[in-house]
């Protein structure tokens, strides 16, 4: 009974849903603020994402005529659940390396596709041609980026010899951060580019493409359903960098204050990199994105993988 309560607490409040949501929303604010500063603007106040969310939750949800209602309304929840679960798993491992199970890395890899799958489901269920285009673009994007991403993650697996987060963290504790080695650095760069695509931000915001297909897969969503999508997007802003930190930068040590500060520094570095890439690049076309991921990025990831094999 007590165990169950503790699990519920971990999932819903800390470090699961609530914690990730709040920090993620703040991260989207940082994103918007930095973007504004890059464009010499003032930018929105810090509570902007919270106001957006509060407003969306109060609005009406319209289900388009002829849409598959259950899928249309259920898809955002699937995405949110996936994001929450990933966050809980990664954080619990970082709290104590013992809370790991065989293959949790693989589980996280699968769960991370859930938010994207939710977008595909929702887009296809909404019976709008533009949403369908958005969904199909998202599908192509997933096909494109999963290959280099898996290669990059398995570079880490190869070096640490384990598919458990606990052991990966332990290895980095003993032998220094992954990113300090040649292959680790390459894998990190590849993973960073993939994270850009997983977040669906410029240059890979192809599925949303506000200017050409309105808002793509999210076009027909309104009110709370849209809020749930925005929320899971915001949570990904927090989770994906934390995943990168866990895999490549030695994780999070919360046992002393310096560890927390060190974590925040790492997080801010990754977030800034993401935002800068976002603000200095135009959107790619679908074919360009696929070629980019399957060409140079996969090649880079393969080089990293080979380097890891020879032990660099």
């Amino acid at each position: 009974m007590f165990d169950l309560l503790r699990l519920m607490f971990a999932f819903i409040i800390m470090p699961g849903f609530l914690f990730t949501a709040v920090v993620g929303l703040l991260a989207t604010w940082v994103d918007r603020k930095v973007t504004a500063r890059v464009q010499y603007r003032q930018g929105p106040p810090w509570f902007q994402p919270f106001a957006d969310l509060a407003k969306l939750l109060g609005k009406e949800t319209i289900v388009p005529e002829g849409a598959a209602k259950a899928v249309f309304l259920g898809a955002p929840l699937i995405g949110l659940a996936g994001a929450t679960l990933v966050s809980t798993i990664i954080w619990m491992v970082n709290f104590s390396h013992g809370v790991t199970f065989i293959g949790d890395l693989i589980v996280v890899l699968y769960l991370l596709t859930l938010p994207s799958l939710a977008i595909i489901f929702g887009g296809s269920a909404s019976r709008n041609p533009l949403s369908a285009i958005g969904a199909s673009r998202e599908m192509k994007l997933i096909l494109a980026y999963e290959l280099p991403f898996i290669l990059a993650v398995f570079t880490v697996v190869l070096r640490t010899g384990s598919i458990m987060f606990g052991n990966i963290l332990g290895y980095q504790l003993a032998n220094g951060m992954m990113i300090q080695s040649c292959s680790g650095l390459i894998a990190f760069l590849v993973a960073l580019i993939v994270v850009q695509a997983k977040l669906g931000v410029v240059p890979f915001d192809i599925p949303e493409a506000e200017q050409e297909i309105a808002a793509g897969a999210l076009l027909e969503y309104s009110g709370p359903a849209l809020a749930v999508y925005k929320l899971s997007r915001a949570m990904m802003y927090f989770i994906l960098p934390v995943l990168l930190i866990t895999l490549f930068m030695g994780g999070i040590d919360l046992s002393f204050w310096g560890g927390i500060a060190w974590f925040i520094i790492k997080y801010v570095i990754i977030l800034t990199l993401i935002i800068l890439i976002k603000n200095t690049n135009p959107r790619l076309r679908t074919d360009q994105a696929v070629r980019f991921f399957w060409g140079p990025v996969t090649a880079l990831a393969a080089i990293g993988f080979i380097l890891a094999m020879v032990g660099w």
Partner: peptide, 20 residues
């Protein structure tokens, strides 16, 4: 950027479903 209405949270959206 000159008028920067995002300061007040005003954003242009591409779909009437998202609009207020």
């Amino acid at each position: 950027p000159k008028f920067d209405v995002e300061r007040f949270g005003i954003v242009l959206v591409g779909s009437p479903r998202h609009a207020d």
